[in-house]
Simulated scan of single mutants.
Amino acid sequence: MKRQVALDTETTGKSDDGTPGEHRIIEVGCVEIIDRKITGRNLQLYVNPGRHVDDEAFKVHGISDEFLADKPNFEDVAHELIDFIRGSELLIHNAKFDVGFMDKEWMLMGLNEKTSEMANVVDTVSLAMKLCPGHQVNLDNLCNIYEVDRSSRTLHGALLDAQILAEVYLAMTGGQASLNFSEEKVITNEKWIRPEGVKLPVMPLSEECHTVHMEKMLSLAQTHMIRKGEEGQPSIAGSDWSDDFDMELLVKGEDEKKSDFKKRLSDQKKQMIEKILTPQQREVLQEFKNKDNAAQEAWLDRVLGRKK
Results as ranks from 00 to 15, higher is better:
Asp243Trp: 02
Gln233Ala: 10
Asn180Gly: 06
Gly157Thr: 08
Phe97Ile: 02
Val251Trp: 03
Asp140Gly: 06
Ile193Met: 12
Asp255Tyr: 10
Ala237Cys: 03
Lys96His: 12
Glu105Trp: 03
Phe261Val: 04
Asp267Cys: 02
Ala221Thr: 08
Val186Ala: 13
Thr211His: 04
Phe288Asp: 12
Phe84Trp: 03
Gly253Asn: 06
Asp16Trp: 02
Pro72His: 09
Ile145Thr: 09
Asp301Ala: 04
Gln296Gly: 02
Val77Ser: 09
Pro133Trp: 07
Lys185Cys: 04
Asp240Val: 14
Cys209Gly: 11
Thr39Cys: 04
Thr9Arg: 14
Gln4Tyr: 12
Ala78Glu: 08
Glu117His: 08
Trp192Tyr: 15
Asp292Lys: 01
Met107Thr: 05
Asp123Tyr: 03
Asp16Leu: 09
Asn138Ile: 00
Gly197Val: 14
Ile33Arg: 00
Ala294Asn: 09
Leu139Gly: 03
Lys2His: 10
Leu249Ser: 00
Val31Met: 01
Lys114Ser: 11
Asp76Val: 09
Gly13Val: 12
Ile164Leu: 15
Leu43Ala: 08
Val212Phe: 13
Ile82Asp: 00
Pro204Leu: 14
Asn290Asp: 13
Pro234Arg: 05
Thr9Trp: 12
Glu254Leu: 08
Lys262Ile: 05
Ser64Cys: 14
Val99Ile: 14
Met102Thr: 00
Thr115Asn: 07
Gly40Ala: 06
Leu108Phe: 11
Asn73Thr: 13
Ser15Phe: 04
Ile82Lys: 12
Thr278Val: 08
Asp98Lys: 03
Leu7Glu: 01
Leu220His: 12
Met118Gly: 06
Asp260Ile: 05
Arg3His: 13
Glu167Lys: 04
Lys263Cys: 10
Leu160Trp: 06
Ser239Ala: 11
Met1Asp: 15
Leu205Tyr: 09
Ser259Pro: 01
Asp301Pro: 00
Gly174Pro: 04
Ala78Gln: 06
Asp301Tyr: 04
Glu207Gly: 04
Glu10Lys: 12
Asp243Gly: 03
Asp35Gln: 05
Ser64Thr: 13
Lys104Cys: 07
Gly13Ala: 13
Asn144Ile: 06
Asp17Val: 05
Ile276Val: 11
Gln176Glu: 07
Phe97Pro: 00
Lys185Trp: 05
Ile145Phe: 11
Arg282Asn: 09
Ser266Cys: 05
Ser152Phe: 10
